[in-house]
């Protein structure tokens, strides 16, 4: 499954990159969500997959009995999901705001900071 997931992640990244390159702010947001998912899956897979055994300690035991899923990447991914959501929420309101202020959702039309050169 690791190999298949690696392949899936590759496709996710490719789709995300394609969307982010579109220059359309809304598609960019979609790509952003996809690439966060891909990143989370990458961390998770890199810590190896263990099927069906959550990292829990049975009542009365001092430590997990036998091999359990690797808890460290899970903790990292949990954090990453939440931060990713924060980023997403901020980005999407920014897009909405840009639409109200600038009247466009095309990134290449937003030239306030780097205006087009006047042709001499």
């Amino acid at each position: 499954m690791e190999a298949l997931l690696a392949l899936t992640i590759g496709v996710l990244v490719a789709a995300a990159v394609y969307l982010m390159l579109s220059g359309h702010m809304f598609r960019f947001i979609l790509g952003l969500v996809l690439i966060s998912n891909a990143a989370n899956l990458t961390i998770f897979t890199a810590g190896r997959l263990t099927e069906g055994v959550p990292a829990l300690i049975a009542v009365g035991a001092e430590a997990p009995d036998g091999l359990v899923a690797n808890p460290l990447p899970q903790a990292l991914v949990l954090t990453a999901i939440v931060i990713g959501f924060g980023l997403f929420a901020f980005a999407i309101t920014l897009v909405k705001r840009a639409w109200t202020e600038l009247g466009t959702v095309e990134a290449d039309e937003m030239r306030l900071a780097e205006p087009r050169k006047e042709k001499p």
Binding site: L5, L41, F44, L49, T50, E51, G52, V53, P54, A55, V68, A69, Q74, V77, L78, I81
Partner: peptide, 10 residues
């Protein structure tokens, strides 16, 4: 994927 590979919290 998280559910199947032992990460219910995630």
């Amino acid at each position: 994927v998280f559910i199947f590979f032992g990460a219910p919290d995630v």
